[in-house]
Structures are given as structure tokens and as C-alpha cells.
Amino acid sequence: MEMIEVRDVQFRYDEEEGSSAVVLDGIHMTVRKGEFVALLGHNGCGKSTLAKHFNAMLLPLGGAVLVKDMNTTDERHKYDIRSTVGMVLQNPDNQLVSTIVEEDVAFGPENLGVEPAVIRTRVDEALKAVGMYDYRDHAAHKLSGGQKQRVAIAGVLAMQPECIVLDEPTAMLDPRGRREVMDTVCRLNREQGITIVLITHYMEEAVLADRVLVMDDGKVVREGTPRQVFSQVEQLRALELDVPQPTELCHVLQQEGITLPDGVLTIEECAEALLQQLEGYHGGH
């Protein structure tokens, strides 16, 4: 049983909303349990629309989306699906409901009708998991962007989801906030085995994933490990996506005829590969 299974999904928004263009055009994909998947693509490629299919916020017009074998069109499973697949949105200000941090985190379990005493322990655990426990009685609007996003993640965690979908959670944050959020996301994936689907524009975040999917024009056009996907520099360029700088540097040097390994992703790998090359030339004499 897969965490999320997307079968030939078609979707477009209603005509009266202005755009009748096809947004999702036959999407096929799966998210396995415990996996960390990154979803890339430029604005308007349909990735946010796809994400909203994962928790039954949108329903496919054609094809089917299954969350742990539950069909999202089945009204009876709506809240099971939404508590299994939690969602964190881009703007940290517009997803916190309550003034006080812990009350906001309690919002999800309260909706699910969880026992008050159980909510209390879940809220405390969720806040500890994102490192915001000390701020539990603070006013939400006074926190930094990174802290607000971590509270939003805690709000999802308190519903005890198996999967968290994050729709550009770092787009509005400064580098420090971005690091805080990404550290939290990676830790939840590694330590609690929570499945992660991350939508992002930042390639250095996508590099952290187990698998990368690239979308363009309502279709999945590339899929593979970060190493496989990012080694195709020209293809990514054609899709007007960035490549991580270390990958790009190796690529431009390869084009000059320097032999370097394909799919270099990190700073360390790049520096090492370059050093080997430099020594290779020097060592020849």
C-alpha cells in the first residue's frame, strides 16, 4: 500500500474562475511510505494544484488519487485523509488561527474531536518536535517567519499525520528561517518516519530529498534521485529551473573538456572532485 497514489489525474479550474486551461494533464505518480519527495517546477506548472489533490482539498476531474487506498472522492474518508496527509502552506501569517501558539496547535485535534487530555499531550509533543515548546504561551503574530512556520508544522503534527505536504514553506522566509524549517522537516522524516512531500523553488532544498519530481505544464516531466535529475543540467535549463551551484560549476567545466563526475550535488562533493582533478594534473609530473 502506497502513501499516496496518483493515477492519470486530470484537472482544470471552473470556467467562471477565468482560466479553463488544463492544469493537470494525466499525472501519474506515487509517494511511498517514509519517503521524502521534492516537487519542482516554475510557477503555474500545476504543482500546488497537485498538492491540493493529496488531501482531498481538490478532487480530480479524471483519474483517481488514493491515500493509503482511500479514494479522495469518497466523502466518508475526507477527514481521515486530511488527518493522514497534513498540509503546510506558503504564507506563515495566513494559516495560524489562534492568537496563542498552543491554542493554534490544538486546533486540528480539536476539530477531530480528540479527548482534551490527549490533545494536551499531543500539543506538547508536537511543539517539542519542532523546537517551539518554550514559546507555547506566546502570541503567534510576534514570532519570526521561521518560528511561525514551525508552529504551523506543529499544528499538522498534532493531528498525528503519516505524511506532511509542504507547499513552498520557505518562500517567504529569510535564510535563517529557511534553515530552521528545513532542519525540522528533515528531522521529522528521519526520526519519526513521516513521509514528506516538499514543493520548493530552492534547489539546495530539493537536494535533500530521496526523490525529485519535476513538473511542467501539468505533467511530470522528470523523475529520479536528485543526482539523476540534476545531472541533466541542459534539460533543467530548458524548463527554466535553477540547478544547484556546485552542479552547475561542474557542468560548465565538463563542457570545457574537464573530466568530472556527473551529478555532483553538494559543496563538499564538488570541492573534492575538483581537488582530485587538480591533483591528477599536478601528480602527472
Binding site: N55, M57, R82, G86, M87, L89, N91, N94, V97, N111
Partner: peptide
């Protein structure tokens, strides 16, 4: 956006 977030949280 808030309405979406609230619905996502059941």
C-alpha cells in the same frame, strides 16, 4: 488562505 488552512486541518 486561512479558510484553506482551516479546512486542511479538518
Amino acid at each position: 488562505e486561512l479558510a484553506t488552512a482551516m479546512e486542511c486541518r479538518c
